[in-house]
Design a binder for these strands. Structure first.
Lengths: 248, 248
DNA sequence: ACCAGGATTTGACCCATATCAAGCAAGGCA
DNA sequence: TGCCTTGCTTGATATGGGTCAAATCCTGGT
């Protein structure tokens, strides 16, 4: 209901901004045509819940634009973010009827949805889709494992520094700013969402951000706009193994 | 070197104990034959390292028997387990040259290895393999996410109870023991490995196990043999959402 | 049976982070 | 214009789990 139904002018796959990164990345023209016939768009406003864990879910989807989060909760309300959905990320699981997590739009988002049954059938016939999905899933698994290291073993300060580096890198629409290797970006998450991401309380997040600011590791303009004067320094604070990641 | 080279009498895929659960689960007879031609066995003794993170890795494999762990470390030595490899689990990643994690044998293990290149080529030609691998990877991703909730939000006591329930369930070669719904099993991990699994110190693990024992949630025989008199109670202590999992 | 070394338990103490509580800043709206 | 609400910061205090240290248990070797 409400505003979910503000659809964009029907978008052609050929012009899609995530054409080369999403599940459909490897598809041939004819395969795209077939996908096109089962696809439809949905949009959600910042703050809206896309699906609740346990809900029937008869579609899978790609995030076209905007940011959403995947969260799990304990009965008493403690919640942990288990995934951050960025443009081109895949939502849902083929073969699964019900959502396993809560999905919430953090910003306004647009999703390219596929009816689940047709998509599953197509997956069986179209190796290009399954191959791409496997690759994406393996990447997510790697990300989840790096995140596990963060949750299990990093200090609050390292957690914040890690999150900031991730966002900075991702925002690798790297608009350099000023001289040197300084960069700036906007935090796409509230303090509370960051806390849920990092397994902390929002107060601790706030304190650690203040501390990093006080120590000159970052600068803030408003609450959300961050400048990193020295990326090396930030990475050092994140405590990651310095031998460079395996992935570019 | 050393004892890696105690191979079993060449095992036929048809008789393989993990035939119906591993990557090869969906393969037809002729596909199995092809796999058979690039497979070889390796075994490792408890405590041995199978590969170091960063090492060249020119094979992928299935765990046939025994238990191994996947761990990540920070420069200063803090380590976090990011995966527990049980029989039928897949090791390595197609398309990746170097290991991303340390793999260590916790018990004596036997692995069914495939040379990576031929395996990758075969994957492109054999949807049955890619399909099964996708399914397994999605399952692992779910497991990783549940684990993230544990690492980020559970108390030490809940963490221990969760680990015990997982091991108990897995050991669902459920040899019921005595009356009621009590069950027994052996912990396949040292206290230190449990600590690395749970993001705790080994002392805290020990204390919480003692506490659960004191409170009658579990009983111990020796250090490793556990009896759970009341599984319900243990699950309650684990703090998991009670609405039942989605998976059987 | 005796010893050595690793695994485990237990105790005392401390600190990082949670909890509880108050106050501030900015935007929406009556 | 001033009130509310939402998001954020900061302070005071409590506490769960970490750290350091020692004792005990267990196993294999001799």
């Amino acid at each position: 209901m409400s505003h979910d139904d503000v659809y964009p002018a029907s978008l052609q796959c050929g012009d899609c901004p995530i054409r080369h990164r999403a599940v459909c990345a490897r598809c041939e023209a004819n395969e795209l045509d077939e996908l096109e016939s089962v696809k439809y768009y949905r949009s959600f406003e910042a703050g809206q819940t896309v699906v609740w864990s346990g809900d029937q879910m008869d579609f899978v989807a790609s995030v076209v634009s905007g940011i959403a989060t995947l969260t799990q909760t304990l009965e008493d309300g403690r919640t942990q973010m288990v995934g951050l959905l960025l443009p081109s990320d895949f939502v849902g699981r083929p073969g699964r009827e019900r959502a396993a997590y809560n999905i919430t739009a953090t910003t306004d988002i647009l999703m390219c949805c596929f009816r689940r049954k047709p998509f599953e059938e197509m997956m069986d016939r179209t190796p290009h889709i399954a191959q791409r999905l496997l690759q994406m899933t393996l990447d997510e698994l790697d990300a989840a494992r790096e995140w596990m290291l963060l949750l299990g073993r990093k200090t609050a300060r390292e957690k914040i520094a890690s999150l900031l580096s991730i966002v900075a890198r991702r925002d690798a629409s790297i608009r350099h700013r000023g001289g040197g290797n300084s960069l700036t970006f906007d935090l796409p998450l509230t303090r509370e969402a960051m806390a849920d991401y990092l397994g902390l309380t929002l107060e601790t997040v706030s304190r650690q951000i203040s501390a990093l600011k006080r120590d000159g590791v970052i600068a803030l303009e408003g609450k959300r706009h961050v400048t990193v004067p020295d990326m090396e320094r930030l990475l050092l604070e994140a405590g990651d193994d310095s031998d460079g990641g395996l992935l570019t």
